[in-house]
Design a protein around this nucleic acid. Structure first.
Lengths: 208, 208
DNA sequence: ACACATCCATACCGGTTGGTATGATTCACG
DNA sequence: CGTGAATCATACCAACCGGTATGGATGTGT
């Protein structure tokens, strides 16, 4: 009960910090706003986090990374036909995206663009996530090759990195244009790109 | 001589502001730093720009937009074979990119990710650039269709937007990974995507 | 040569920022 | 029951921010 209570307030701070950072970016994220959202005060926050910097890192690791792990990496790892799962994940994101989602953009992408040239620790931490992402897609593509859904001559390494890039890019332009339509259009094109890695144009994908 | 001198200091402020914003983002861009770079003082800056906000807009219009116009839009508009020109522009950017270029990322993309959800005027101004960009590529693709370099069934509207998205996405991940190699790899994949819009896989592109 | 506008430097201001020092309250444990 | 550690609130601070008011210097038109 004791540790539960303390962990709960820590989580509350973490969650509010994530929201503030998602809305305003890390540098513009106001400690005061985070505390106002939680109803707590500075004493609480600086009890759990030594500085704003550490709070940011905790958000990256325990919110962003964890969320991505659950929503993308894990499903890709455990899927029987991971290429289809990849397309499926894109489809889900495209369908469930609403005005606010698009307006705020991808939390990881936002932080990367803002912080990577300014702070090496942030940069390293986020690059780790990026590489995990790329690896997850890479594995999916390689398995896809074994299942004859991806052509053998495809450079899965480069393709995986490009898919991550394009994925973040789709978020980026949709965010600026504030258009869910643009987002879905872009995701569809990205799906088409993945399909273009398959054998002879326009055939279905079912397994061996 | 008079107007020349005043315009010169205005340009100097504009250039320094662009640099500061490119490095730190708009919100974190310090007026003091901009002035330190130019050797001027606040009196000068606030003589030419009523507020930081207006300075930011001027940077977007007179530096970013103008630069893009000269380096991308105009060449695409005037090229005889615009699809090849598009591939060529990508190639140039990939080859000339160095550590610093990649580290700081695309100025427009940086600003979009930071400011579009925070300021409607910024957002509108940048969306205009984005649409001009998309239109430039769209026209290139349509002409490419007429020249049998792009398949007739390709949705040029969607493809153009996707190319812009992926382009910015390549900048984004390369920026975070701080890797010119990753950037070039992504651009190559993007070029392959454009080529995949052409007739029957892997054939050359020369005209009719 | 006088008046006036342009151009820019200096000094200053209110507000916000992240961070800290201190103290009150509560809880775990002997 | 009491003692020390964990948990959080309050008050405060120096630094920095964008912005303004004022004034001096320079040139320009008449």
């Amino acid at each position: 009960m004791d540790t539960k209570q303390s962990d709960l307030t820590r989580e509350k701070i973490l969650h509010a910090a994530f929201g503030e950072i998602h809305r305003n970016g890390f540098q513009a994220a106001s400690i005061a706003n985070i505390l106002a959202d939680t109803g707590l005060t500075k004493g609480a926050l600086y009890h759990y986090f030594p500085a704003k910097h550490a709070l940011g890192l905790a958000v990256i690791d325990e919110v962003i990374r964890a969320g991505l792990e659950e929503m993308v990496f894990s499903p890709l790892r455990e899927a029987e036909y991971p290429v289809e799962e990849l397309l499926n994940i894109m489809q889900c994101k495209a369908e469930y995206a609403d005005e606010d989602t698009v307006r705020l953009g991808c939390p990881l992408n936002n932080l990367m663009q803002e912080m990577s040239p300014l702070d090496d620790v942030f940069q390293a931490r986020m690059t780790l996530i990026l590489k995990a992402w790329k690896t997850a897609i890479f594995n999916a593509l390689v398995i896809g090759q074994r299942q004859h859904q991806i052509r053998p001559d495809v450079d899965c390494e480069a393709a995986a990195l490009f898919i991550v890039s394009a994925w973040e890019g789709c978020w980026g332009v949709a965010k600026n244009m504030q258009s869910v339509h643009a987002f879905r259009s872009c995701i569809t094109q990205l799906q088409d790109y993945v399909l273009s890695l398959g054998p002879r144009p326009g055939l279905e994908m079912k397994a061996s």
